[in-house]
């Protein structure tokens, strides 16, 4: 776990640094970053979809597929995303994003939420390969971890 934590703190610090350094990016470049992070979110959604469908019983439980999906979530959540979130790419500066300016004002909070996400994904990876009941039990914490970031840093719609 410490490896992730250290990585995230580093990412957070670099993000804060890059927020200053990259404040003169063109709108086109800012949009590329927005597309990158939204693509990451789609990868989250795709893998969560597999786990969620098993949890709700709309597809049959399959330990291997579930473990693979959860493993992808772990990788996604521990990816260094510092370049995806340049300063000036919040919803008040750009069209097409719902990222609130609060995200750039609270790097410590972002780091904590990201760590919680990784922890929930790691827990899911262990649970997903065990059995359906364990997978279902780990789903709530995973949803909560998504909400942990979205509640504070993403506008509702």
């Amino acid at each position: 776990m410490n490896k992730y934590l250290a990585g995230l703190v580093m990412a957070g610090l670099t993000m804060a640094g890059s927020a200053f350094a990259e404040s003169h990016m063109s709108e086109e470049d800012l949009m590329k970053a927005v597309t990158a992070r939204q693509s990451t979110m789609k990868l989250y959604a795709f893998n969560l979809g597999t786990l969620g469908a098993m949890a709700r019983g709309t597809i049959d439980y399959n330990a291997e597929a579930a473990e693979a999906a959860a493993g992808n979530l772990v990788k996604l959540s521990s990816m260094n995303q510092m370049a995806f979130w340049p300063a000036g790419s919040d919803m008040e500066s750009l069209e097409g994003t719902k990222a609130l300016p609060a995200l750039w004002e609270d790097m410590a909070g972002v780091g904590e939420a990201a760590t919680a996400m990784t922890e929930a994904a790691v827990a899911m990876e262990a649970a997903a390969g065990t059995d359906l009941a364990s997978l279902q039990g780990a789903m709530g914490a995973l949803g909560g971890a998504c909400g942990g970031c979205h509640k504070a840093y993403r506008a509702s719609d």
Partner: peptide, 27 residues
């Protein structure tokens, strides 16, 4: 019902802002 319980939309996007808070209550 599943959205209000888990916060996940049918596409497995997850609720943001005030609605994330509402889901915390509704769950």
């Amino acid at each position: 019902a599943a959205y209000l319980k888990s916060g996940f939309t049918p596409e497995f996007d997850s609720a943001g802002g005030e609605m994330a808070e509402v889901v915390q209550n509704m769950s």
